[in-house]
Amino acid sequence: MNVTYRRFRSILGWLTTGVYLATGLCLTVACLRISRLGPHPFTPETVRAAFRPIRFLPALCLALSAAGLILDAFLPQAAPKGTRDARRSPDPNGAQKSVRLPRLVLLGLALVLLILGVAGEGVAGVIAKAANICSECVGLG
C-alpha cells in the first residue's frame, strides 16, 4: 500500500511538474509571439488572442496542485532526508563577539539620519515617487 502510494505520489509529482513547466513555456511563447508584432504590440485583442489557446492551463495547474496537497496532507510523510551539506557543523564561535556597541552606534546613526531626513522634508521625495505609478518600475514603459 505504502509502496503503491509512493509510486502514485511520485508520478503525480512529476506530472504536476510537467504541467507547470508546460504552462511556463506556453506563457513565454505567447508573450514572445505578441512582442514580435511591433514596438508596442500589446492590445486587449492581441493579448486575448495569444492567451486564449492556453486559458485552460491555470485550472489544470490548480487541480493537480490541489490533488497533490490533499494527498500529502492525508497520507504519511517520508522522513526528511536532510540536505547535501548535512554534515556541516555550525560555527558557534561566530556568534560569540559582542554586538552591543556596533548595534548602538548603528541605531544612533539611523535615528540621526531619520531626523535629518524628516526635518529636511525628505518624506516628500518618497511620496512624489510612491504616490504616482512609476511606469518604468512596473514594466509599462
Partner: peptide, 12 residues
Amino acid sequence: AGRSTLFYVGGI
C-alpha cells in the same frame, strides 16, 4: 531626489 530624501530612506 535630494539629500534629505536620501537621509530619510537611508535612516529607515
